[in-house]
Write a protein that binds this DNA or RNA. Structure first.
Length: 113
DNA sequence: AACATGACCATTA
DNA sequence: GTAATGGCCATGT
């Protein structure tokens, strides 16, 4: 299942949709959850071409807790949407991953709970 | 086909 | 804390 090359992006989108309101996830996290560890760059590439409005692309930031987009590209829009969800930025424009990073409750192979 | 670019990440110094 | 390096691989020329 899911061996098509095109479905890779679709898997990324499916996981991004699962990120709840008020939480964020990193590009690498999405790639890992989709089963493509190390392909974080492809997640960013996929999100650059988001096909629909149902995908909360703004909840995806980089591993440093910062917004990767340039302000002109839409970084300002992304930041505004995150703040609108109650996420606080530090003085250095950094989001506390410790506090806001999304942690999936169910794991397919490991029982964390 | 080869090369350069890119909404990245982990490691190392 | 920052900066540089290697790796990843889809797209466009």
């Amino acid at each position: 299942m899911g061996s098509d090359k095109q479905s890779k992006w679709q898997e990324f989108y499916a996981i991004v949709k699962q990120v709840p309101h008020g939480k964020v996830a990193s590009y690498g996290q999405i790639a890992t959850l989709a089963g493509y560890y190390g392909q974080a760059r492809q997640v960013g590439y996929a999100l650059h071409a988001v096909p629909s409005d149902d995908i909360p692309w703004h909840r995806i930031i980089n591993a440093q807790g910062k917004i990767s987009l340039n302000l002109e590209m839409g970084g300002a829009v992304q930041r505004k949407m995150l703040e609108d969800e109650g996420i606080i930025f530090s003085e250095a424009e950094v989001i506390s991953l410790k506090k806001y990073q999304w942690v999936p409750q169910i794991d397919p192979e490991d029982n964390q709970i």
